[in-house]
């Protein structure tokens, strides 16, 4: 087992005919992902990597039995395509593109919540189950099968942690990129709950960063609902404070968002805070993770 991406996940690639979409489709297929087709409006009837291309998601679902989708759609068109995909009955969506307007993302989040579907991103590398398959852009060579779950706000840092673990023969059960935008489609506690319930995951690493309050909410969830060991790294300890633009955010969040606020909340919830990524070795050793 794994979380979100399973043996019966049948994936379509939206934006499959684009330069990035077609290259990444080839790599996802090479990794063993069950890709069943693609969608690009106006390009229906074409074939990419041996896969049929459709104009509309509805047709793709009808013809291929797809139940998941990964987006390589230009940012300005993502909102419409996202609604179309949910209405076509797809219930797991990975939004790779960056620079999607945040007011669009708020609408997407609202609709995803209302319809009860799960979506990752925007600005996510996607999800990878080592040795099984991947939806998104994670570079396969860094990952190894095993029993540690990784959930990361940063794409490149999810590769970094997987790579550091794999070098010591510590494999991963599922690696999830949440997305790096101020609003994401799936919050951290929901993913943590999936890892807690996954029989193939023994422990979880949270790769967070300063800003927002995902890690603080995760700490609340861990204290109340998790038994598996959790380690966390927060990037941005020495980052210069962003040039401050207004008071509203600071007033609402108080100390939330800072390195100290996040690591304090996580420690209180029993999480091992990693001062530097490479310290994950010692943590894995302590829990004899493989």
């Amino acid at each position: 087992m794994s979380i979100l991406l399973h043996d019966d996940t049948r994936v379509i690639v939206q934006g499959i005919t684009g330069k990035i979409g077609s290259v990444q489709t080839k790599w996802m297929l090479q990794y063993g992902t069950k890709i069943v087709g693609g969608v690009t409006p106006g390009k229906g009837g074409q074939v990419v990597e041996g896969l049929p291309v459709f104009n509309y998601v509805e047709d793709a679902v009808k013809e291929t039995g797809a139940n998941a989708s990964v987006f390589f759609v230009p940012a300005a068109f993502v909102l419409d395509a996202f609604f179309e995909t949910i209405d076509a009955g797809i219930d797991f969506i990975v939004i790779v593109p960056e620079h999607i307007p945040v007011h669009d993302v708020m609408k997407m989040r609202d609709y995803a919540d209302e319809k009860g579907i799960t979506a990752l991103g925007p600005t996510t590398p996607g999800i990878l189950v080592p040795g099984k398959g991947k939806m998104g852009i994670m570079p396969a060579s860094l990952f190894a099968p095993g029993r540690v779950g990784i959930i990361s706000r940063s794409g490149t840092l999810s590769y970094e942690f997987a790579g550091i673990l794999s070098e010591k023969q510590i494999g991963q059960s599922t690696v999830v990129g949440m997305g790096a935008d101020p609003v994401v489609l799936c919050n951290l506690p929901k993913i943590l709950a999936m890892f807690e319930n996954d029989p193939d995951t023994d422990a979880v690493i949270i790769v967070g960063e300063v800003g927002g309050e995902q890690e603080e909410k995760a700490a609340e969830f861990i204290a109340g609902h998790m038994k598996k060991p959790v380690a966390a790294y927060i990037a941005g300890r020495f980052s210069p404070q962003g040039k401050k633009m207004g008071h509203a955010g600071a007033i609402v969040r108080g100390s939330a968002g800072t390195y100290e606020g996040k690591t304090g909340a996580l420690r209180e919830a029993g999480v091992t805070v990693l001062e530097s990524p490479i310290h994950v070795h010692a943590w894995a050793e302590k829990y004899r993770l493989r």
């Binding site: 794409g155 990037a235 020495f238």
Partner: peptide
Amino acid sequence: GAGLGMASMD
């Protein structure tokens, strides 16, 4: 990547 950049800085 921003996360990787921040971690590198740290």
